[in-house]
Amino acid sequence: MRWLTRRSRVPPVLRLSLAVILAAASIVGLAAPPSQGQTSPTNPNGGAAHEFNPPTKSPEAPAPGDPTKSFPDSPGLRALGYTLYQGTCASCHGIALQGTPGVAPSLRRVGPGPVDFYLSTGRMPLDQPKSQPLRNPPLFNRAKIYALIAYISAFGGPRAPTADPAKGDLTYGFHQFTLNCAGCHQIVARGGITVNAQVPDLEQANPQEIAEAVRMGPYLMPHFDAKQINQHALDSIVRYVLWTRSPINAGGWGIYNIGPIPEGIVAWFIGLAALVIVARLIGERMDERT
């Protein structure tokens, strides 16, 4: 216990100030979303995750008349896609896209949307088949992603949805987001958790990815068809999600817009800490009275 009784050379006021700075840093640490490129831990879901299989869903097709996203297609692209697929994807999804029961879903008739989503957000390929796919720097460049899209789309499936935030309505988007998304993604899209899975924040999701995710329902997310969320609602939700990156923080520093946890840290380690420093400065210490 000598380290406890040794006299420190740092003056107390400086130490308290250091505590304040550390507190501010901890707000940033605890409240900030995980940075892009953070690799998923080998098993982010803990012990029980290995018994857990997300349901296999087929993506919803855009309603007739809704805008869709086209991707380049050519025999050359498909040939390159075939090579990439057999090298990187086939060990789990099967050499003929048939999937492996209990490990990876079939990729027949998924269409271009999911392929674009999983590859451009770096969620695939996954090093541990049963861990949760999380956003990572993409492994493939754009041309290679197009090649894989061209190859896998050749096995059928709906066209990829798309969204245009300019056609959306912000107020309606907030309403729809509250109804359909906030229960998991948090009301200002800062992410959260569900049973055994992290729910990503949407700070880096672009409109195309959001549209694909809504129609497909990656991992545990439910998928929404055009009756549940029509194209106008989709455009509006995307517009709201883009707005959440700089929401109206009328009250000052927004401390990440997730509510009471950072607020409590500020109250204790900035508000009360500052007042304790004041008390220590104006109140006397015993060693001053000799």
Binding site: F174, T178, L179, A182, G183, C184, H185, Q186, I187, V188, R190, G191, G192, I193, T194, V199, P247, I248, N249, A250, G251, G252, W253, G254, I255, N257, I258, G259, P260, E263, V266, I270
Partner: peptide, 20 residues
């Protein structure tokens, strides 16, 4: 420092919830 920005949370209805 902003605290409890209720305009960002929106109104409560018993059928609504948010994460976190």
């Amino acid at each position: 420092v902003q605290i409890n920005p209720i305009w960002q949370w929106g109104p409560f209805h018993p059928y609504l919830s948010e994460n976190g």
